[in-house]
């Protein structure tokens, strides 16, 4: 990389990127943007998990809910979620609201589908066992259906987690006034390429670590398997 085959602008050396990152790190600006991104991603994802999980389990448990919701899920699931970026901006502007709404809408369906498939795969014999031991129907929903759905639900949430990063970064790249995606675009347009590379790598590794930590936590929750 130091051979001069490419211009240092186009591919800054690793040491230049590292020192650029350090210069950013001692400036609160980086952390302000990181906090904005974290807040948006966290809030959107949390909403998606709560609403999507509840919807998926309700779809598996009550047939009318399924009849109402499944055509919409089937129709909207294949939609490229990035198409929603302009609408959320139209509705809620350039700030946090539009990002949270986007991530919520985009991440909800994988969670719903995971919860739905998981709850539907719940064995009849488990439900009957619980009922014959005196569990009410509502008990069964909480004690049997929800834990049965957990492996697939957690898988759906993993997809949603990856999706939340994609949606967060792309929406911030395209329209935002804060956030790590915004910072990348800002630095790039200003020609500060070593700093831009630093933030890009930071975002990429944040995504990687989020996934790893999530997998670790999920395997703890599912340690009863095999």
């Amino acid at each position: 990389m130091r051979l001069g085959l490419v211009s240092a602008d186009v591919l800054p050396s690793l040491s230049a990127v590292a020192s650029a990152w350090w210069n950013l790190a001692i400036d609160p600006d980086l952390w302000r943007n990181a906090a904005a991104s974290l807040y948006r991603g966290g809030a959107g994802l949390a909403l998606a998990i709560v609403v999507g999980g509840a919807l998926g389990i309700a779809m598996a448990w009550w047939r009318p809910v399924n009849a109402l919701a499944s055509p919409l899920v089937e129709m909207l699931y294949p939609m490229p979620k990035s198409a929603l970026i302009p609408v959320t901006v139209l509705w809620l502007g350039f700030g946090d609201g539009s990002k949270i709404l986007l991530i919520f809408l985009g991440c909800m369906l994988p969670v719903t589908l995971g919860a739905f498939n998981g709850a539907r795969s719940c064995e009849q014999a488990l439900v009957w066992s619980a009922r014959s031991m005196g569990a009410s129907r509502l008990n069964v929903l909480w004690d049997v259906v929800v834990p049965s759905a957990l492996p697939e639900l957690l898988n759906g949430i993993r997809t949603a987690l990856a999706l939340s990063f994609i949606l967060l970064v792309s929406s911030e790249l395209i329209v935002a006034r804060a956030g790590l995606g915004y910072l990348i675009g800002f630095l790039g347009e200003g020609g500060v390429y070593d700093a831009m590379f630093a933030v890009v790598l930071m975002v990429a590794f944040l995504g990687f670590f989020a996934d790893r930590v999530y997998m670790l936590a999920a395997s703890r929750v599912l340690r009863w398997r095999d």
Binding site: E123, A125, L126, W128, S129, A130, R131, S132, M133, G134, D143, V144, P147, L150, W224, R225
Partner: peptide
């Protein structure tokens, strides 16, 4: 169903969690 009639299933139906 009720607890006066206990059931044992072929595939055990234990709660795996």
């Amino acid at each position: 169903p009720g607890p006066d009639r206990g059931v044992v299933f072929q595939h055990f139906a234990l709660f795996p969690w």
